[in-house]
């Protein structure tokens, strides 16, 4: 049986609980046999009953409780069942959790990981399908991570989660994606058609958060650079593969795992080569990740940058009906269409 992103995250949690008894897992409905709404915490309460705390439906309070635990030397991990519910923890994230270290003149640590699944394509409708991570990017003192569905080199979704839980002394919002959960992890073997280059942001001193650069093996130089994260990165990879083999349109795909703080350096030389970037995200288009990255590129590359395009969700709530939701969220066909235009 293939290892999925879900399996990997689950193993990461179990390894962290095993490695350090100060790691505590809190969340709603996380006890076995249910094991969490998306099963990421499956098995944890059975193996580590003293470290797993099932909770009332109190997201705002729980964010505070775990912050207090972290300030007093534990390493809590909080599951927020749906990413949509991060609105309920916004006060804690923005006015408490992200501020304490700096505001207290670096006299405390706050090792807290808050995990939550974002994303649609499952027909859950307006309040259970959103990608709200843009609300939390650019908040000083808060790191926003998003795993990719790769197990390449020393990194996998689970290893990134485990290392973050065990080694990071600052608060982290760890964004998972519901569609990613059941995807098989892609390895060097399954990525045989690709050249995979691992890069790191120079400020990521311990090289914990890889940036994957994918190009088609043996292909001529790329015409367009793509950057995407989460499930959209997988859609982009499928589009990249299809266009290369069916239409001889060659692209490079850059997948970051740390969205905020965001560093441009690893993207810069690739984009400077093609001069064209397509930025893809599942959240709504305006004032988001793509807007920030596009601006950074324009500021840095000047006239070496010839074209910036963004692909994102339409500016409406996420509809429940399959036909409406498909029309609202970016699809693989949309990526392909844009790449055809941009490479022409």
């Amino acid at each position: 049986m293939k290892t999925t992103v879900l399996d990997s995250l689950n193993q990461g949690l179990i390894s962290a609980l095993k490695a350090d008894s100060s790691v505590h897992l809190l969340g709603e409905d996380i006890l076995d046999p249910y094991g969490g709404a998306f099963k990421v915490t499956r098995g944890c309460s059975t193996a580590f009953s003293m470290q797993v705390i099932p909770t009332p439906i109190s997201e705002a309070g729980l964010a505070g409780v775990t912050a207090g635990m972290a300030l007093r030397g534990l390493r809590p991990v909080l599951e927020i069942m749906f990413g949509d519910f991060t609105t309920l923890i916004a006060d804690q994230l923005i006015n408490h959790i992200s501020k304490f270290r700096w505001m207290y003149n670096d006299s405390v640590t706050l090792p807290l990981v808050i995990r939550t699944p974002m994303g649609g394509r499952r027909g859950y409708g307006p309040t259970h399908s959103q990608s709200l991570e843009k609300l939390f990017m650019g908040v000083p003192g808060l790191t926003v991570l998003v795993p990719a569905n790769f197990s390449v080199g020393i990194h996998s979704p689970g290893s990134i989660l485990e290392n973050t839980i065990l080694n990071t002394d600052s608060p982290v919002l760890f964004i998972e994606n519901k569609m990613q959960y059941l995807q098989p992890l892609l390895t060097a073997e399954t990525l045989a058609d690709f050249e995979v280059d691992l890069r790191y942001d120079p400020t990521d001193i311990n090289q914990q958060y890889p940036i994957y650069c994918l190009s088609i093996k043996g292909a001529p130089s790329a015409a367009v650079t793509i950057s995407a994260y989460g499930f959209c990165a997988e859609l982009a990879r499928q589009a990249q593969l299809k266009l290369a083999f069916e239409e001889e349109i060659f692209t490079e795909l850059i997948i970051p795992t740390r969205l905020s703080p965001f560093a441009l350096q690893p993207l810069m030389d690739v984009v400077a080569r093609t001069g064209k970037i397509l930025l893809i995200e599942e959240g709504t288009r305006s004032l988001g990740w793509g807007a920030e990255v596009g601006t950074l590129l324009a500021e840095t590359l000047g006239d070496k940058l010839k074209q910036v395009k963004r692909l994102a969700a339409l500016e409406t709530p996420v509809p429940a009906a399959v036909s409406l939701e498909t029309g609202m969220l970016p699809q693989q066909e949309d990526i392909e269409a844009l790449l055809r235009k941009m490479s022409a």
């Binding site: 409780v65 635990m69 300030l71 809590p76």
Partner: peptide, 16 residues
């Protein structure tokens, strides 16, 4: 917001 934080601190001390 400091009230749940206080609860978390109390639980951490109890745990320790």
């Amino acid at each position: 917001g400091i009230v749940p934080i206080a609860v978390g601190m109390a639980l951490a001390e109890k745990q320790k």
